[in-house]
Nucleic acid binder design. Structure first.
Lengths: 204, 204
DNA sequence: CCACTAAATGAATGCCATTCATTTATAAGA
DNA sequence: TCTTATAAATGAATGGCATTCATTTAGTGG
């Protein structure tokens, strides 16, 4: 037995490749080349490219910081988790469509994250039947916000349509004048605090 | 001049094709065939396939219901807009990565939507410099939630890992016992109401 | 030493977006 | 009516991609 390849090695190589060349550079051929192997050899270890993305996703889930659950107030734990979750996946937005439809059975690290977060919600007094929905709501916000981080700075520039859209143009200009370094962070903070206080009210 | 093709026709054909075959079926070849034209002919009217997706996106933006802005309380208007926005794009999740990075200049209908929504926020008493961030926060939540709608029903089934994840497994089971028809709607409602009441507090 | 099996190979397949030199057709100007 | 400019459509290439498969290689247990 004992070939050169295994799932851990493939995951590691894929992450290196993504870091160096981005998701466009992550092809089965390039992945194989980085492992000094023929592309077809990969298929002895993964069923498809989607499988590779799944391995990467699950590894990233293990990087999300859930350490604050059980180590302080629920609000602080959610805040730490959410910011960390967003930061990790803002560098990996092409995975978001994959995660969103991914059965957790296939992703043990992701499942482990859910377990820690669920326990944190339960201990904070959430009724059991609302825990999953609350996490899903937060996660949806986090995924959507991860895209914002990568958006171009001038995404909201109305260009030639400025006169036709006075309210929007004024709002964009007014935000720009605040001179925030990362506008995406302002929106994320605003939404996250709203969700934390709104969902926090569900606790018994 | 006057060929068979124009942007409106391409958009319409693309939408028909997506409805019938899904986004996997939307290829330049298939699009051309549905218009009785050679694939290369499309490139006289659009620069790339991404352009086609952009045309589709902008058309969908015109389907989002913004009519409640200026016709009732801000909370109700946001609710109507958000549900409609999510419903439209839940059928078109492959566009979400495109929208998220799309400069609004290139999408007049999308820009028109932002104008109406911005005016609604301003009239409701939002400070101008918080309007864009608030809309972005809501939009992030909406995009993330659009994915949930299409997720398989058993996405949270922990499978063989059930014993290792008691809190999460209990929470999933407890939600399932509620027997909601569309679990995604519960999470969306929960998050949206939290955002509405949290963001609403910014009004002067 | 043999037989089994996991793993790697390299050549093919089929699909895809995109390009380009060329042709067709239409509208405007003389 | 003839000419010319131009927009639009064509068909044949190109290069990249994931994936398949028959075949070979190389270890391991009996």
């Amino acid at each position: 037995m004992g070939g050169v390849l295994d799932k851990a090695g493939i995951t590691e190589a894929a992450l290196r490749l993504i870091e160096k060349k981005g998701y466009d550079g992550l092809t089965m051929a390039a992945l194989a080349r980085s492992l000094n192997v023929a592309p077809s050899a990969l298929y002895n270890h993964v069923k498809s490219k989607r499988d590779v993305l799944l391995l990467v996703e699950d590894h990233l889930a293990s990087l999300v910081d859930v350490s604050a659950f059980g180590a302080g107030p629920w609000e602080d734990a959610v805040r730490t988790w959410a910011w960390s979750y967003r930061d990790v996946f803002s560098q990996h937005t092409p995975l978001i469509p994959v995660i969103a439809v991914l059965p957790v059975t296939d992703a043990p690290q992701t499942l482990a994250m859910y377990e820690t977060v669920s326990a944190g919600f339960r201990d904070a007094g959430f009724p059991e039947e609302r825990i999953v929905s609350s996490i899903v709501a937060l996660e949806s916000f986090i995924f959507g916000s991860a895209y914002d981080v990568t958006a171009p700075a001038d995404i909201f520039d109305p260009g030639t349509m400025a006169e036709a859209t006075p309210s929007f143009t004024g709002a964009v200009r007014s935000l720009a004048e605040q001179g925030h370094e990362r506008p995406a962070d302002v929106a994320f903070s605003l939404g996250l605090e709203a969700l934390i206080s709104g969902l926090g009210g569900l606790r018994g």
